[in-house]
Amino acid sequence: MRCAVVQFPGSNCDMDAVKAINHAIGESADIVWHTVASLEAYDLIILPGGFAYGDYLRAGAIARFSAVMEAVAHEAERGKWVMGICNGFQVLTEGGLLPGALRRNESLQFRSEIATLEVVNAETAFTRHYRAGETIRIPIAHGEGNYYADEQTLLRMRERGQIVFRYAREHNPNGSVDDIAGVINERGNVLGMMPHPERAVHERLGSADGARLFTAIFESWREAYAKR
């Protein structure tokens, strides 16, 4: 599986993502600079955490207009897997690849801690190695993770299984509507989440629960590849 981790000026979880891929599935990953115009060679594209372009104006607002984002949109259109983690999630919502928006945390505080999540949809290419309703522990580190979508959009997302992860009841760290921590597009190939699975791939990091996201996408790729 060919993996790309996009690097924007201000990304800071890019190497964590590369190492998580190495560790969890034994694959290598290329760091791809934000000026790259084609991502055709890749099966999985990760938009990592950080503060792309300083998060000036709004988180992700400037990054979404970088050259590489056209390539990301193009590959998403072709059905490639795209995963936005934290700042990457913000870039995907700003760019319209995922519904909704991420606002400043309700507490106005930056929250860095291990969050307890509920796997809401375990039937996606990214979450098939979890059980629906399973509780997992994944770290968060963000100041603007307060997910918002209007009622109508939320209704549609619920009907289509687009809410993939929720913060455990009574443990919503940022005020997200419906306790939403991660969402997927209708087609099921673009995932965005505020928690950092790449920081939870080994018990020594405090949790290994994030590793199954990478093993799941690897298995999905193997199945798709075998059919070709």
């Binding site: 207009f65 928006a101 209007d150």
Partner: peptide, 8 residues
Amino acid sequence: RLLTNPVI
């Protein structure tokens, strides 16, 4: 296009 996010 840029200065606002029309979602919010």
